[in-house]
């Protein structure tokens, strides 16, 4: 079987063209490719290439996002035909910006990188009160909680969330990642967070690593 169609699929995905990606997935299916092969050799391998290019700063965030969107469009076609569920999230992350803080583009970017790394991410948005975090943790039972703050006057809200989690007995089986413009490593450590990186693009890798080492 010639690989031309998979090559075309790769090009479409890497260009972030969701319509063409779907088109080539359909053609590949018609030509008799197994759905699993299209998924792994067409979509996933192309996406891995994109992710590598992003890490090397050879492409921009929009390229990454558009390729992700194209991959998801391709998976949408393949999903009913797959023999088994090939993708299960590597972990669940609850993420939100601290109460009183209305900045969220940094948090949104981190969310993208976490999803790209295979996490299921539940986004509580910005200006999230402490009790919302607590209720959401009880409801969604994530392994990781991401807290974001962009102001010197809201960063201590992260400490309040962590204290409330301790009080509720919810802290033990939870990794906490913190970030935002005024946050430093020593601040993160000081309030009892588990994961921090000044560079939001590195948070997903760190979270993956920490989760692997934990028992939850």
């Amino acid at each position: 079987m010639d690989r031309e169609i998979l090559n075309e699929l790769t090009v479409a995905l890497q260009k972030g063209d969701a319509i063409k990606t779907q088109k080539f997935v359909k053609i590949a299916l018609k030509k008799g490719y197994e759905p699993e092969q299209i998924l792994t050799e067409g979509l996933v391998s192309s996406m891995n290439t994109i992710a590598e290019k992003f890490k090397k700063k050879q492409i921009f965030v929009p390229d990454l996002l558009l390729a992700t969107r194209a991959m998801n469009a391709g998976i949408f076609i393949l999903k009913p035909k797959l023999k088994k569920q090939l993708f299960s999230p590597i972990g669940k992350v609850l993420i939100g910006t601290i109460e009183g803080d209305l900045h969220d583009i940094g948090k949104n970017l981190v969310k993208v990188f976490l999803e790209r790394a295979g996490f299921e991410v539940i986004d509580l948005g910005n200006d999230v009160p402490v009790n919302y975090f607590i209720e959401a943790i009880k409801k969604f039972k994530p392994q990781i909680l991401g807290l974001s703050a962009s102001l010197t006057t809201t960063m201590y809200g992260m400490r309040d969330v962590i204290k409330a989690l301790e009080k509720e007995g919810l802290r033990e089986n939870l990794l906490i990642v913190v970030g935002g413009v005024p946050i430093t490593e020593s601040f993160a450590t000081g309030i009892g967070a588990d994961i921090y990186d000044m560079d939001g693009t590195k948070v997903a890798d760190k979270a993956k690593e920490k989760l692997k080492c934990s028992n939850f």
Binding site: T152, T153, M155, G157, P182
Partner: peptide, 8 residues
């Protein structure tokens, strides 16, 4: 100028 890290 703005406040140092503190809650208001």
């Amino acid at each position: 100028f703005t406040l140092p890290p503190m809650q208001v």
